[in-house]
Amino acid sequence: MENIFDIKFTFEKKVKEEIIEKFSGKQGGGYSVFSYHWQCFAWAAIIGFYYDERKELSSPLADKVFNLNTMRNNDGDKIAKALLCMCITKAGTLDILKDPKDAISLINEYANGGFYRIQKLIENGENTFNDLEKVKEEIFGRE
């Protein structure tokens, strides 16, 4: 059985182009809101979990570029653990971890739901997402 920390996340190519690349620097490159793509993915997953918005992925899919180990190795250990805890909570049982691919798939679907929520807000003229300083304030100002 694969280790849950080694399974790569999946997201739609459209999401990568329209949201992840807008809010994230290129894997460790320049800083916009997030330094890494995985941080934007985690943000979307948290939004999806919070609003209980889960959406299956549709093609075309972007390259699988990171996993929970990527998060852990880049100061995101607590975020990786939080995603797993939210996954268990939504599944309602620890059994979701018996097949790590199921757990990663569930996180993918909630992240996708979060990405679609973000995209809908942008399309409806939610201008705070077009002001990177306001996005930073919203994310980092939470208690």
Rank of each mutant, 00 (worst) to 15 (best):
N130V: 11
A82P: 00
G125M: 13
L106K: 03
E123H: 12
E109G: 06
A111F: 06
N67T: 15
L68H: 04
K90E: 11
K90R: 13
C87T: 04
L106M: 12
N69S: 10
K101L: 01
I107G: 03
Q119M: 05
C87D: 03
G113V: 07
D77L: 12
I104P: 06
N124Q: 12
I96E: 01
R117P: 04
D99M: 06
K101S: 01
I96H: 00
N130W: 14
G92I: 09
T89L: 11
A82L: 07
N124K: 15
N74S: 03
L83D: 00
L94T: 10
D102S: 14
L84N: 09
M86D: 08
Y110I: 02
L106A: 05
T128F: 13
G114W: 05
G92P: 13
E109R: 00
M71F: 13
K78M: 11
P100I: 02
N69M: 09
G125R: 12
Y110K: 03
I96L: 09
A111M: 04
E109A: 01
L121E: 08
N69G: 09
T70I: 15
I122H: 09
M71L: 12
I88W: 00
T128K: 14
L83N: 01
I104E: 01
A91R: 02
N124S: 09
T93L: 00
E123D: 13
D77S: 13
F129N: 07
N130K: 03
N73G: 14
L106Q: 09
D95V: 03
D77E: 12
I118A: 01
G113S: 13
I107N: 01
T128Q: 05
T89F: 14
L121F: 15
Y110F: 14
A111K: 01
D77H: 14
L84W: 10
K81M: 11
N112L: 05
L94Q: 11
N127V: 11
N108L: 09
M71K: 05
I96F: 12
K98L: 14
G114E: 07
N74G: 05
D95C: 07
S105W: 00
N130Q: 11
T128G: 10
K98Q: 12
A103D: 06
N74L: 12
N127A: 12
L94N: 15
N130P: 15
L97C: 08
A91D: 00
N69I: 08
L97A: 02
K98N: 08
T89S: 08
T89C: 11
I88F: 01
I104C: 03
L97R: 04
G76W: 05
D75G: 06
F129H: 08
F115G: 03
N108W: 05
E109Y: 08
M71Q: 05
A111D: 04
A103G: 06
Y110G: 00
G125V: 15
A103P: 03
D75C: 13
F129P: 09
I118N: 02
C87P: 15
E123I: 11
I118L: 12
T70L: 15
R72D: 15
Q119W: 12
A80I: 02
K101C: 02
I118V: 06
D77F: 12
I96S: 00
L97I: 03
G114L: 00
N130A: 10
A103C: 07
N112T: 05
S105F: 11
L97S: 02
I107Q: 01
I88Q: 02
R117M: 04
L83R: 02
F115C: 07
N108T: 10
T128E: 07
